[in-house]
């Protein structure tokens, strides 16, 4: 298994996951639909997972792979709470567009 992972140079993993991470960050910052924002958060976390797995294979220890499982668990918890809050918002304003959420502003 290890050889398959290492048949791609390490930098490529770094480039791919940085690219995915940037897409995620841009999505969180610029998309206006709350559900898509939550999806972009997932994309950010999964790009980190990819990076951790590849690094773990190259470093020759399992710490990174164990970390990935915990990130998955936490991401699930985060989205669960996020969606619950979204339901509570939807009850109040009947929309998932976050532009409507501007009652509080400076």
């Amino acid at each position: 298994m290890e050889n398959t992972l290492q048949s791609v140079p390490q930098n490529w993993y770094l480039l791919l996951s940085s690219f995915l991470f940037c897409i995620g960050v841009m999505g969180v910052l610029f998309r206006r639909n709350a559900i898509i924002i939550l999806m972009c958060v997932e994309l950010m976390l999964n790009s980190v997972n990819l990076l951790l797995v590849s690094y773990s294979s190259y470093a020759g220890n399992n710490d990174g792979q164990v970390f990935v499982f915990f990130i998955m668990v936490v991401a699930a918890a985060e989205v669960a709470v996020g969606l619950a809050l979204l339901v509570s918002i939807f009850r109040n304003i009947a929309s998932t567009d976050i532009d409507v959420l501007s009652k509080l502003k400076w």
Partner: peptide, 18 residues
């Protein structure tokens, strides 16, 4: 306001932990 605050909190904390 309370749910709006909560949603802003969870999105920004998710971004920061990312």
């Amino acid at each position: 306001q309370s749910s709006e605050a909560a949603f802003k909190l969870i999105i920004s904390s998710a971004l920061s932990s990312g």
